[in-house]
Design a protein around this nucleic acid. Structure first.
Lengths: 238, 238
DNA sequence: GAATCACTTAAACGTTTGTTTGAATTCTAG
DNA sequence: CTAGAATTCAAACAAACGTTTAAGTGATTC
């Protein structure tokens, strides 16, 4: 009798790992890494406290596992999409818009699909970006290294007139705006009285972001910028 | 004799508060709010553990005090600068470049001046942006509300053809790129093999960021954007 | 010179933290 | 059916946490 009840609410096989990952993802997103306790996670997942250390080794390794589960496939998808777009456009070089699309679409898919983490995961990712914990920074570096260099090369071909140094910076700005936007912190609520229906409609969000970023990428070089007969450097001096 | 020694290393008056704020600022920046303990802070500051609760009430209130000390003057300076620029340009409307300059310059001054917190504080601010803790979010909202609405109005005059909804979004992107950039997380190190001399040269950094953002603000509206005869929405569908 | 003040101090408060242990249980083969 | 590996479990671990307390200090005020 007791066995039947157990069969109901206790997943016999190692779906335990999945349940822990799901609970950890939601809680890390909501409270951050440090502020989330293993007891909260295991209670939410409905598993024993020791399960985390048994399956993942430590809290830090659990956090990395939470990120890897979503991030690795997403970045793989980005690279795959970029390659496909390039093949389709060959022999012409890919436009900035298409390259950005290759970055956005996998993120959008992830945000849309609750089974893949949904918006919660992107917010968690946004948090992780700003986290100075060494183990997080190093982990993200490794996760992103291949994808970033791949996209940088693509943008380099799309913007051949742009010096590489400048491209590096602008790509950095792009990543900043993108992660800040996708993270969807409530900070934006103070910037805009946004239409509530818009607030988390990720598609329209990215469709607004894309032209903004493309224009930024194609902007004239800093030295040549004119502004009311005065450049920013001059404006800086009181 | 003992009195003399005490006079040396123990500030008799309430410079204790300042020492706590300084230590807390550095440690919060390095480890985040949750991961920083009051014992670390008081040990670094060379004061008694109970001093934090005596002078600030709680750890949360200390964190807010750390932010307020720098943030409030900076935003005041931003508003003041914007007002001055507007007077100087009158009756002509202010250009986007000048408005952005009014946002950047006070941040730049803060980043430059170690006595005002320097880059460390901006990194702390970048972290706080991404923190979901309610007391942090609400605090930042209150701190930024006035400044943001002021700048939004200014941009509205500079870009009269841009719908307000669109402006809200773009201002959000601007804040994202700016905070991400100023926070200067090491995440950028994986994006660019940047010249080490450039890496934290905030002035050149902002001079690169400004044209990028201005171009983004002036970008054509999303619906009208063309890209290789295909728009982003269409590209989205596999 | 006693009283009052702002402040500092050491010690302890009760919780909560991540991790470990060793026995119970379940699953997997031979 | 049984031996053995894999997993779950309750319990306990030491350590660290934010906060509070009550005594103590030294200067200021009446």
């Amino acid at each position: 009798m007791a066995a039947k009840i157990i069969a109901f609410d206790a997943p016999k096989n190692s779906a335990t790992k999945e349940r822990i990952l799901d609970a950890a993802e939601a809680l890390f997103m909501e409270h951050g890494f440090e502020a989330t306790s293993l007891r909260q996670i295991t209670a939410t997942a409905g598993v024993n406290l020791a399960a985390v250390n048994y399956h993942f080794g430590s809290k830090e390794e659990l956090f990395q596992a939470v990120l890897t589960r979503r991030l690795d496939p997403m970045n793989q998808e980005r690279i795959g999409l970029l390659t496909r777009f390039e093949r389709e456009a060959a022999p012409r070089a890919l436009s900035c818009e298409r390259i950005l699309a290759a970055m956005f679409i996998p993120a959008l898919r992830l945000a849309r699909d609750r089974r893949r983490g949904g918006k919660d995961f992107l917010r968690l990712l946004g948090r992780a970006y700003a986290d100075p914990a060494p183990f997080i920074r190093q982990f993200l570096s490794e996760q992103y290294a291949v994808m970033i260099s791949r996209f940088k090369a693509a943008f380099g071909r799309a913007l051949p007139q742009l010096p590489k140094r400048e491209l590096s910076w602008r790509l950095h700005f792009v990543m900043g705006a993108l992660s800040y936007t996708l993270a969807g912190t409530d900070a934006l609520k103070l910037i805009a009285e946004l239409n509530p229906r818009d607030t988390h409609n990720d598609e329209t969000l990215l469709r607004r972001l894309a032209p903004f970023l493309v224009a930024g990428l194609k902007a004239p070089l800093p030295d040549l910028v004119e502004l009311d007969g005065e450049n920013v450097a001059q404006a800086r001096i009181r």
